[in-house]
Nucleic acid binder design. Structure first.
Length: 628
RNA sequence: GGGCCUAUAGCUCAGCAUGGAUAGAGUGUUGGACUUCUAAUCCAAUGGUCAAGGGAUCGAAGCCCUUUGGGCCCA
């Protein structure tokens, strides 16, 4: 058990006390205390003030008095603070032993929210016509981190990437290659996805703008794409798969992995839409409009003042939301699976198989990538559309929150960075645009970070061999990028600035990784494996107790993060852990102490910290080099 | 015109869900700490009418209403 043990003990005893005082059950809080106010605090007396017509302080006093007669194993004493808070002081000798010995277990930090149920997390979902830019990276890292957290919370997680390989953006690069004569091989070794995005896509779009007559070519290509057997569609398939390979390379480099790639073209050709269309009509969720501006269309009624949403136009064609509905229903496992599955030709990592949908019925692999719940990570510009899907899925599947849209605000470019890309924004931030070529690619940011961290590492360790330097630089760069993408709240916009994003000090991944490296070095130099059989009363400095407390809060943080689908909770926790370790590091010497018992106790704490931080950083997909 | 998000220190952000104690970090600026387990570190100083106004409450950064600035979506 962890710090949760003492919280539970206090809560139970408080309930007994309230029962003795014949007070109705109130839902009071029992939380880790703010520094300087003991170890645990409760607001119970504030909540009772009205009912008992007494001051919070008087109530706290009488509860505290009764509390002292309860059987307390982890609490030394309780105290009624003048403010009215009830504060508790832990018996650290016992609590430290509980927390530290627990931290050595593989299951440390686990919390059973999912009960082994299956949940789908879909993220990335970028058109396969360009390289990933820094805005896509926010989506990808949020999705990957959330899926790691949910796994820790005992969900069985299926990670999907939806490949939109049949839309307008794909048509555009096909036009570029087929009609504007772009070579299929990128110049001087440029990555294919970058070539398609930077050159073919952007320049093809420019040509449309100059010559409106080209629009008909574009429409014809789009039409050809719909027929899967057309020569155009086969060509598009070849191109988009090459781009996809480039995108996946970027993701894998950032330690982001998937379970299955779902191709939009397969969804369209599978006939899923016809099935769901019939269902929607049966359930009365779709209505046929007889008059008004949507006459002849099938619509979903808007909520309140909202406009009705057209699903099928009067000419019988489905709008693009129509693709999302059957797909969402499929993800929730509510439709018979029309797909077959085959392995993706490239291996993404040693322990994670990657599959892809196929309509080739010769592939008989039996797979199920659906879930009881679905989390779809898409930026909040899609909120309106996602709200409709959420509503419909709620009607289909009677599980509350079965379909969750995890939205986040987008990444914009700072005016300085926009300027380096040739756009003067007059001091304002700028929205990225793949079409206009206004973006910063993920690969280029990674490359810059790696150059800088390599330089730093060489400066610190001139003696180190190149392979190790490269490895450290890689892990620190990936960590930095990942941490930057999730350390703030999802509903806060990120204004990306090339210069500022390269900072490696302060609230960054390297700061946290550095604390890990320090702990590693202490243990390495000690040359011993610390024994857990130590006298925990020796760990009595404030900095030591703080660190132990933070270690003990791990599973509670995982619970919060999973419940709220909030990756930043874990980011902040890792930072807190590192801060308390660095503070301990300054104040308490570990090695070469005269007192062997004390030395072992501290080594034990260092080891416990190291293990916990590694587990927590693993949830963020941040690696932990032993030296840096 | 309708909807969503946002406003806290010079700058970037925690805290808000579930109202209570002294509003916290980083960064910046200024000063200090490496013959001591790695200074990508630590310590100190500096810096806040929590956008404005109103309301309910014993009590509001947090809840409700209005207004304003910024971003986005739909029309």
């Amino acid at each position: 058990m962890t710090f949760k043990s003492i919280l539970d003990e206090i809560e139970n005893n408080l309930k007994k006390v309230l029962n003795d005082m014949s007070i109705d059950d109130v839902s009071f809080s029992v939380e880790p205390a703010k520094p300087g106010f003991g170890d645990v605090s409760s607001n119970v007396s504030f909540l009772l003030a009205k009912q008992l017509k007494k001051s919070p302080q008087d109530i706290a006093k009488s509860i505290s008095e009764r509390f002292s007669h309860c059987t307390n194993t982890l609490v030394l004493k309780s105290e009624a603070h003048a403010s009215g808070y009830l504060n508790f002081f832990a018996d650290w000798k016992k609590l430290s032993q509980l927390i530290l010995s627990e931290s050595y277990l593989d299951t440390f930090g686990d919390i059973d929210l999912g009960k082994g149920t299956t949940i789908v997390v879909e993220h990335t979902s970028v058109n396969p016509n360009k390289a990933l830019h820094i805005g896509h990276i926010r989506n990808i890292i949020i999705g990957d981190t959330v899926s790691r957290i949910l796994k820790k919370a005992n969900y069985n997680v299926n990670v999907l990437n939806y490949i939109d390989d049949s839309g307008l953006q794909v048509a555009d690069i096909v036009v570029g290659f087929k009609h504007f004569g772009y070579d299929q091989e990128p110049p001087n070794g440029k990555k294919f996805d970058h070539y398609c995005g930077d050159d073919v896509y952007v320049k093809t779009t420019e040509k449309y703008e100059k010559d409106a007559g080209l629009e008909s070519i574009r429409k014809n290509v789009l039409k050809d794409l719909e027929d899967g057997n057309s020569e155009t569609a086969m060509f598009a398939d070849k191109i988009t798969r090459r781009v996809l390979a480039g995108q996946l390379e970027t993701c894998w480099n950032l330690d982001v992995f998937y379970d299955c790639l779902n191709f939009e073209s397969h969804i369209i050709r599978s006939g899923l839409w016809d099935k769901i269309f019939a269902n929607l009509k049966d359930m009365g969720l779709l209505e046929f409009e007889n008059d008004g501006k949507n006459a002849g269309c099938w619509v979903i009624r808007g909520d309140g003042k909202e406009e009705d949403k057209v699903i099928v136009r009067s000419n019988g064609t489905a709008t693009y939301i129509a693709k999302d509905i059957p797909y969402a229903a499929w993800k929730l496992g509510m439709l018979e699976d029309p797909f077959c599955y085959e392995r993706y030709p490239e291996v993404q990592s040693s322990d994670r198989d990657l599959w892809q949908t196929t309509l080739d019925s010769a592939c008989t692999a039996s797979k199920n990538f659906t879930g009881d719940k679905v989390v779809t990570v898409i930026d909040s510009r899609q909120a309106r559309l996602q709200k409709i899907i959420t509503y419909l899925m709620g009607r289909f599947k009677s599980v509350p929150d079965a379909y969750v849209h995890l939205g986040y605000e987008s990444v914009t470019l700072s005016s300085e960075t926009a300027k380096t890309l040739g756009l003067d924004t007059d001091g304002k931030q700028a929205q990225m645009s793949g079409r206009k070529g206004l973006y910063v690619s993920a690969d280029s940011v990674y490359d810059m970070l790696r150059e800088k961290t390599k330089e730093e590492t060489v400066k610190r360790h001139p003696e180190m061999d190149v392979a190790e330097t490269e490895k450290i630089a890689h892990h620190v760069s990936v960590g930095t990028l990942r941490y930057e993408m999730i350390k703030q709240d999802l509903d806060k916009m990120i204004t990306f600035d090339l210069t500022k994003s390269l900072s490696l000090e302060g609230d960054t991944a390297p700061y946290i990784q550095y604390s890990y490296a320090r702990a590693s070095r202490i243990l390495e130099k000690s040359g011993k494996v610390p024994s857990i059989d130590v006298d925990f009363s020796l760990l009595c400095e404030n900095s030591e107790l703080d660190l132990i407390k933070n270690i003990g809060l791990f599973n509670l943080q995982v619970r919060d993060a999973a419940n709220n689908l909030s990756p930043k909770v874990i980011a902040r926790y890792c930072h807190e852990l590192a801060v308390s370790f660095n503070s301990f590091y300054e104040k308490s010497k570990v090695l070469n102490l005269d007192d062997a018992c004390l030395e072992n106790s501290r080594l034990c704490l260092v080891n416990s910290f190291k293990i916990t931080l590694k587990k927590a950083l693993d949830l963020l997909g941040v690696k932990t080099p032993d030296r840096m």
